[in-house]
Design a binder for these strands. Structure first.
Lengths: 203, 203
DNA sequence: GTGCAAGTTCGCACTGAGTGTATATTCTGG
DNA sequence: CCAGAATATACACTCAGTGCGAACTTGCAC
């Protein structure tokens, strides 16, 4: 790897870290591109050759994580059922998020949860992942009904979302996480019919 | 209702229609706030006292629709099970969308599907609805597990999303729609276990 | 009607995100 | 060391969105 590419990585990292640090210190809206560029020792214009927008810098790492999820889906051993794959990947992802806690990961999540516009972008990414799951699913199970595939994918990703939310609220204790994942997947597998309160009229 | 309020409604409508028309004619990015204001015969500054942003004008009607869904949830007869309520509300909503087809409804959906940033906002709204369903659910079924509630809500709204997507792709034929809704809800109710391809290893 | 208070529109000046472009700087391969 | 490519930067620009104060319209009391 040449000097050129190394420097590029370095600059990208410098910008991302400066941005996250400033966002944490003084807030997202209160930080301008000029501030970030100044802190990272580049020109404001250069910021945009590394990140297409101010929002994207928040998602830099998260995108890498989502790429890993996709790769995990692609690499799944053939003897696994789709549900087993999902369980494995979700657990891996939660663990990765939990481990990242010391760095800027927590700040990112905090930012995304606070700013509605960032929330919207995060949901878009989730949705893109959902689309990807649909594609893989139709590829994996030829002849599967289209509605089935979309609903299944939605339920799986929805469950993942639920677990992440739950874990953030209750810390990342490993057994509790595993429990939540299993509980979510049980519903996805056996249906809401297994939740009694839903099948009888409730006032 | 006084003259003041009538005029306000009128202006709001004029702005929204001018905006949608221009978006359809020359594209979203190619239309500036100044263009819209000019077409609606108001000052650019006035636009922002009716809509907080350019994006929001696209969602004006859709927000009303979502409000209706919430109201439908609030008004549900006590003898219905939550699943039955959901089926009813989804069918009502699809029908409303289908009827709106003659007006600017189609343009709105087209815009949202094309522009990623609008897509993100639409997903945010879906997610807010999901939150609302969770709240109603915990209110309706005291003592329900938190993970359960989030997964259930995610699956229901995911199913709704699936049906809307499916209907857009295949037209809004009433029986086909009902079929898709029932298919989606069947999966949600009885679980993925009822879809054979998922429970055995598939390559 | 007249006048006053409240609501509404508008013009103006401003900030900040993001883009196009031309110029300088830095790296790479020979 | 040099030619050419990649990268960084300065500059000028568009557009979304905000704050503010002045002008105007409406509702209401007298």
């Amino acid at each position: 790897m040449g000097l050129r590419e190394r420097k590029k990585r370095q600059t990208r990292r410098a910008i991302a870290e400066a941005a996250l640090r400033l966002f944490a210190e003084r807030g997202y809206e209160e930080t301008t591109i000029a501030d970030i560029a100044g802190a990272a020792d580049v020109s404001p214009r250069t910021f945009f050759s590394y990140f297409p927008s101010k929002e994207d810098v928040v998602f830099a790492e998260i995108d890498e994580r989502l790429t890993e999820v996709r790769e995990g889906l692609d690499r799944r051993p053939p003897e696994e059922t789709p549900l087993q794959s999902m369980r494995r990947i979700v657990l891996e992802m939660i663990e990765a998020i939990a481990n990242e806690h010391g760095e800027y990961g927590a700040i990112q999540v905090q930012l995304i949860l606070d700013r509605p516009s960032l929330q919207a972008r995060a949901l878009k990414r989730m949705n893109d992942t959902e689309q990807y799951v649909v594609e893989r699913l139709t590829e994996l199970c030829p002849g599967i009904d289209e509605v089935d595939a979309v609903v299944i994918s939605g339920a799986l990703v929805g469950g993942m979302k639920a677990v992440i939310t739950h874990c953030r609220a209750h810390g990342y204790a490993p057994e509790a996480t595993r429990e939540a994942v299993d509980r979510a997947l049980a519903i996805v597998e056996h249906g809401l019919g297994s939740v009694p309160v839903l099948t009888r009229p409730a006032t």
